[in-house]
Write a protein that binds this DNA or RNA. Structure first.
Lengths: 153, 153
DNA sequence: AGTGAAATGCACAATTC
DNA sequence: GAATTGTGCATTTCACT
């Protein structure tokens, strides 16, 4: 699964992670190459799935999304059908920004962005009404110390 | 802090979140407007900080980053100096993708992306050698069910 | 705040080295 | 695998409504 990338590929990825609006010329200059090879490398990395997509990062506060919760979930159900419904519910809900299945005694963790505590409760009620859940702990974020989309290269 | 945005602004943001590579013409067509007004709205939203930046989303697996941990941290130290050093450490470490200060008995949560369990241990050892931490629980992700950068509008 | 058009610049492709 | 050139499209600006 891991693609073979050389030093220049990694530099290009670093630039694209930092600012995807830069022109090819700028990127080429910074990585010490020129337009065409950089363009070809980017195209290949998109085809290989190394570069998934390009997106705009928005400011949650500006959109009135002032509450962020991490939700730890324990369940007693481990059947295929239960899991399918649970995953569908998570994927369908736009306030769920992240969802992971975990090893250990906590089964799932979610990251949920909402307007306020009341909006979280609405989400929570909807979730437990749709799938049976044994135990839920919500951790409320007081301060976002770091929020990074750039992966370490 | 919350900006006033009309229906067209929100539609533009939705398009940019989904695919920031689209041309102005395409976005304009989809939101039922035309090039110039869309361009002006985007510029204003960038100035207002609603749109923070534009970035490439990379595939962690392709980069060999196959392990993802959520780290729950309890500390006994709550002095300003300790906190400053702790935050600096987190911000300096590129494998820390998210860090939040929490309400409740768990003080911090981190999301950490690394190559493997050994790389996590290296990070962990570095962290506890730099700042005194009372209690750490690492939750290992087995499966990324959802990973979304797009905020709900 | 939106339209239409005009100009600049860039992305992309083909060709050549 | 990289440089050069060229075409067309996208971005950006402006004049007008």
């Amino acid at each position: 699964m891991s693609a073979r990338l050389d030093e220049i590929d990694r530099k290009i990825l670093a630039e694209l992670q930092e600012d995807a609006e830069q022109s090819l010329d700028e990127i080429a200059r910074k990585v010490g190459s020129s337009k065409t090879p950089v363009w070809n490398r980017i195209r290949r990395m998109k085809e290989a799935g190394v570069i998934r997509r390009q997106t705009a990062i928005l400011d949650p506060e500006s959109l009135g999304l002032e509450a962020c919760f991490f939700v730890l979930i324990r369940t007693s159900e481990h059947e295929a059908d239960w899991q399918r419904r649970f995953l569908e519910t998570l994927r369908a809900r736009p306030e769920v920004l992240e969802a992971h299945r975990l090893a250990g005694d906590i089964d799932y963790i979610l990251k949920v962005r909402v307007k306020n505590a009341r909006a979280y409760d609405t989400f929570y009620q909807a979730l437990i009404s749709q799938v049976k859940i044994h135990n839920v702990t919500a951790l409320l974020s007081m301060e976002e110390i770091k929020s990074e989309t750039a992966l370490p290269l």
